[in-house]
Design a protein around this nucleic acid. Structure first.
Lengths: 302, 302
DNA sequence: TCGGTAAATAAGGCTTTCCTTAATGAGGGG
DNA sequence: CCCCTCATTAAGGAAAGCCTTATTTACCGA
């Protein structure tokens, strides 16, 4: 299986014809046909078959096409990436809850100060050590991590509580996406409280979960300082439970200093500045459009 | 540049030594060394250099490593993907706002009814036609799309309004991530109202933007039926403007029927059922943990 | 200064890739 | 039924990949 074989397959699938693919690639028709034949042999699937006047994908071919497109695109990207003069990149992965509240302002502040192209990703805690060691990420923010060559440092102390509406129902638990990460503080709290699976409802984001809790739809675990304004207004009230308040820390993790990139080191230093701490303590207030970077959900294709 | 050359590079970078990489790959040391040499020649960068007792990445090598890891992982994935018996996959991409409110419940309902492994992605409108034609996505939900071989069909009628707090400030505009997509309804509305760049603040999600608007931080564009509950409670009030209310439609787009996958066709049929329409009209109420799928932000690596 | 360790290079052989031209199916439309 | 289009197969040659063993170079520590 070669990059060029995959490229030929992508062209054929997209253009619906070997002839057209050959023309587009600037080679003869049998050249494409043969690349395809070899890929077929290697993978044991026809991938595309002739049907009337065009080539159509088989089941397997259709599953392959997306992956093949990505590989081809990344191949081109790889060549471009090593060219000198490219700006340094910093990829920070974090817990879903953290990403929602601190990613925007934190990265906004950092990129204002340093000329770095920073992006944010969300990843499950279990996958994060792999992301760091494979260099898909430079810094991880969230739970403490242990692993070969990884260094975790606490960056913020926080308290976990449970919030709800005074007369709201108590038999439902409303969580954000971090509730699906077994290693998150949210999940840990739910386990301590022995919450059963069917009682848990997952919302698209933490803000929506808290809003539903404020409307009485159930209880929600919360990081105290992130719901401070709702508590002050009385939209949410703290609910006493056997396990709360629960002390916790946010950690920043990187490869050991010798192995990490320059940008990662700079970011770690930045995290201990008062301005960074301040941003992490106050919820998201929005960022200018030019500085906004969508958060990418990172996952390992194992 | 070969997949195996990239693999050798990844091993050397990760293990910090050619010798260790050779052992791990089960080949001789020069085999690895030569793969590396060829990659270096091809890309014009040393990638890794010896420094004391370990091989360390150069600038370019460090930029390459993440991409190379992905390519290698996807290469393995490709082989697995074509094996028969894998469940059908459906990848739906949508506008950021839509993803936040309807992705969870809609896909939850669909996967309950049909045995399909469905995932959701967010993509900029401009990139969506490419995602569809490259088969990285099966169905797109959001703005109407035109393109070779694409078919758009309206699925829901909606109204755009502007909301805010009665005594809130009027000089700021608060938007969700869809405010950064120039082709989104939100951006269209801001253009019609001639809103200037510095007045716009982008939040991590739409819910947070509306919450900030309710607290008086500014005005926010909104899809009427998604803020119905906040309007009913009086947390938000409609603000009259020259451009609102603005009628709009949500469209579903796929490749033309002959070219699209079976799952895509099934999903298109599903979208016109009363249950699907109902889900799209009512905001997110959370989904069971087992059915939750995080939303992936999809981007084209050009 | 001298070993020792590890990376790089050289040389050789085998396999695979990748392209060409020419010939051979396979299928649809007149 | 024939012709036309397009995919596939065949055959051959140049190049590159990929592995080996043997040798050379580079660097660190004693």
């Amino acid at each position: 299986m070669t990059l060029s074989q995959l490229g030929a397959f992508v062209f054929v699938a997209r253009l619906g014809s070997v002839k057209a693919a050959a023309r587009a690639l600037g080679v003869s028709e049998p050249a494409v046909s043969q690349s395809l034949a070899q890929l077929r042999r290697h993978l044991g699937d026809p991938l595309v078959t002739r049907s009337g006047d065009r080539m159509v994908l088989t089941e397997g071919g259709s599953r392959l096409l997306g992956i093949a497109s990505q590989i081809v695109a990344l191949g081109a990207e790889a060549v471009a990436a090593v060219q000198p003069g490219r700006p340094a990149r910093l990829h920070v992965v974090m817990d879903a809850g953290l990403a929602e509240y601190v990613a925007g302002p934190l990265l906004c502040l950092f990129t204002q100060r340093k000329q770095v192209d920073a992006t944010t990703g969300v990843a499950a805690t279990a996958e994060t050590p792999l992301l760091l060691s494979s260099r898909l990420a430079d810094v991880a923010l969230g739970a403490q991590l242990t692993g070969d060559g990884l260094v975790s440092r606490p960056v913020l102390r926080c308290r976990l509580i449970v919030v709800g509406s005074p007369r709201g129902r108590r038999d439902h638990w409303l969580v954000g996406p971090s509730g699906t990460d077994p290693a998150s503080d949210t999940s840990r709290l739910l386990r301590l409280l022995r919450v059963q699976e069917p009682q848990v409802r997952v919302f698209a984001n933490q803000t929506a979960a808290w809003k539903a809790a404020a409307e009485g739809a159930g209880l929600a675990p919360a990081t105290a300082h992130l719901v401070a304004s709702q508590l002050r207004r009385g939209e949410l009230v703290p609910i006493e439970t056997a396990a709360t308040p629960l002390a916790s820390y946010w950690y920043a993790t990187t490869l050991e200093p010798a192995a990490r990139s320059g940008a990662a080191g700079t970011f770690m230093d930045f995290l201990t500045t008062p301005a960074a701490t301040q941003v992490m303590r106050t919820p998201d207030e929005g960022v200018p459009r030019s500085r906004f970077r969508p958060t990418v959900h990172v996952s390992i294709w194992s």
